[in-house]
Design a protein around this nucleic acid. Structure first.
Lengths: 234, 234
DNA sequence: ATTTATAGTGTATAATTGACACAATTAAAT
DNA sequence: ATTTAATTGTGTCAATTATACACTATAAAT
């Protein structure tokens, strides 16, 4: 069996951008490091890839460790590999992008990691190139949410259209027209009326919908307009 | 200075998907390996990341090595990191996606690497997980070309609208309506009429355009329809 | 009962898309 | 020289979709 004797091995890290939505703001799950290096500073949650571990498994491990959640929405975002990005040692980091339902997280796990949910516009300075990673992730969130129905990953199972609108307004940091938004969303055919109404309203109660998980996959490409529907990539 | 004494180092490879367009078909630049491991089999062009090299620099080095070209369109595609993807040794590969103008490549460099341009539908079996990488790249090409004006990277500096159409028809493997295609393309405002006509036609000669490189960046988000223009990510 | 805040629906106009037809250009064939 | 075949360039109409905007309904507090 062949081997690669002359090639150098590099430390491979995994960092996770974890987004949540509290009904008002998009939040990031960040940790105040109580370990070296850079103890006391803020960073993304991360870790090293283990020798016998697939990349996605590593990301899931780290996400589970911090949030207590399995099966969250995760995708690879980008690899950061600048030679001196980590002053301690050459480290290449694979950044994962995760969307979670904020109420579902295990508060105890979060506390034990010294982590907090922080609004995007209040995020502290981060170590290394983590700020770049966050900016890349925000860009990706905006990009992807405009093309695919991923916003639902940030909402509870049952949600109202006004809630959904607040989410999109938070993502794009802009007001949207209620009537057009509602029409467009309903026209996707992705929402199922649960028959229930939101309970905590002091005024008119909103209809609660859930995501049509069957059509979700079929309609994952809802949108764009350059090519005929039939040839949109799956 | 801190270090990470207990963490394991991993071989970090770079593999390049290189697309070209010959006026008719989308082609891949593949190599028939005259080196170990997997000598004699087909694969993507790749190499190992060097200790003092940024990731993007590594990709550029490999691309230059094979094609003699600098400043080609390259972007990170995805990291492939399954534990046993390379039977010889645990190797994590960062896959880069490159679009080049096929006539510009250095034929001598390509020959010396035992490489060939191969149509997508005639591609041979590839080693390791390279076929998965190629499929992912085709998907990405279709995705991105529907949203951003990247097709131009595959065409010569001066090109006609019929040429452009043949490119898109090759990408999506489908016929497109000439009139609607032309209208849509011209309406982007990205094409500048050079005043010249294509020379090699046996029938009516087509107008040659070039890309408006100033507007190209402004209009890189041409399309999608979920959010108002003003909030499309940059 | 009135007020306040929010939810839900409708409509008229403009813009865009998709389907389709015809005229113009070039070189080769007659 | 004229015809033919192939390809390029442009126009139009109908259907769809987007945008801007106004009214009605519901719930709770006064």
């Amino acid at each position: 069996m062949y081997s690669y004797p002359l090639s150098s091995r590099i430390l491979l890290a995994i960092d996770c951008i974890i987004f949540g939505f509290d009904g008002k703001d998009i939040k990031l799950l960040l940790i105040k490091r109580n370990f070296e290096p850079e103890m006391g500073k803020w960073s993304l949650m991360g870790g090293f890839l283990k020798e016998e571990e697939d990349l996605e498994a590593g990301a899931s491990r780290i996400l589970f460790d911090l949030t207590g959640l399995k099966d969250v929405y995760v995708e690879q975002l980008e690899v950061f590999g600048k030679v001196n990005r980590d002053p301690a040692e050459r480290t290449v980091s694979v950044v994962f992008f995760a969307l979670i339902q904020i109420e579902e997280h295990d508060a105890e796990a979060v506390r034990s990691h010294n982590a907090s949910w922080i609004s995007l516009d209040k995020r502290p300075q981060l170590i290394f190139d983590h700020e770049q990673m966050v900016m890349r992730a925000i860009e990706h969130l905006r990009y992807k949410a405009a093309l695919h129905p991923i916003g639902f990953e940030l909402l509870p199972e049952f949600f109202s259209i006004p809630q959904l609108q607040k989410l999109y307004e938070a993502i794009y940091n802009t007001p949207l027209d209620r009537r057009n938004f509602s029409r467009k969303l309903l026209s996707t055919g992705l929402l199922i009326d649960t028959g229930h109404k939101s309970s905590n309203s002091t005024t008119k109660k909103a209809t609660l919908y859930k995501l049509d998980t069957v059509r979700y996959k079929e309609k994952f490409h809802a949108f764009w307009n350059f090519m005929p529907d039939s040839m949109k990539p799956v």
